[in-house]
Simulated scan of single mutants.
Amino acid sequence: MKKRYYLHGDQVEGNPEEFYCASCDLFVDRPHFDQHDNQPNRLNNFQKYLNTLKSWKVIKKRTKTYQRPKNPPNLFD
C-alpha cells in the first residue's frame, strides 16, 4: 500500500482539526502556522507549501511509494 504524501498545510485525513507542518514534520493545529510567518530569514507558509508541491511533482515521477488524494484540503492553496 502506498503512503500518503502530505504538503505543508494539508489537512490530516480523518481529522479536520489537524494539518501537516513540513517545517516541524508534525501534524499540528491551525494556530501553529501563525508562529512561522513574518519571521526574518524564514520562508512564509505559502512559500513552504509551494516548495513541498514542487518536491511532490518530482517524487511522483520517480517513485510509486507515495500517493496523494485529488485536491485534498490545504490551508495555503
Rank of each mutant, 00 (worst) to 15 (best):
V28L: 12
R30P: 00
R4L: 15
S23E: 10
Y6T: 05
R4T: 08
D34L: 15
T63N: 07
D10P: 00
Q67Y: 15
K61S: 10
T52Q: 00
L53N: 05
F46L: 10
H8Y: 08
P73W: 03
L43G: 04
L75Q: 06
P40L: 13
Y49D: 06
H32M: 05
G14T: 13
K60G: 00
L26S: 14
V28K: 06
D34R: 11
G14V: 09
N45Y: 00
L26I: 01
K61L: 12
R42H: 07
T52V: 02
N45E: 05
R30K: 15
H36D: 11
V28F: 11
K60C: 10
K3P: 01
P73T: 06
L50C: 12
V12P: 00
G9P: 01
Q67M: 13
Q67D: 12
K54R: 13
N74V: 07
R42Q: 15
N44Y: 00
K70S: 13
S55H: 00
D37W: 04
Q39V: 14
R30N: 07
N74R: 12
K64G: 11
F27W: 10
K48A: 11
Q67K: 13
K48Q: 06
N51G: 06
K48M: 14
K2R: 11
F33T: 08
V58I: 15
K54Q: 07
L43P: 02
K2Y: 13
Y6A: 13
R42V: 08
N15L: 11
N15I: 13
R68W: 03
C24E: 14
K48I: 01
N15T: 10
N51H: 12
F19H: 03
C21L: 12
A22L: 03
R62L: 14
R42F: 10
Y20I: 06
P69T: 08
Y20N: 03
S23I: 05
I59G: 01
T65W: 05
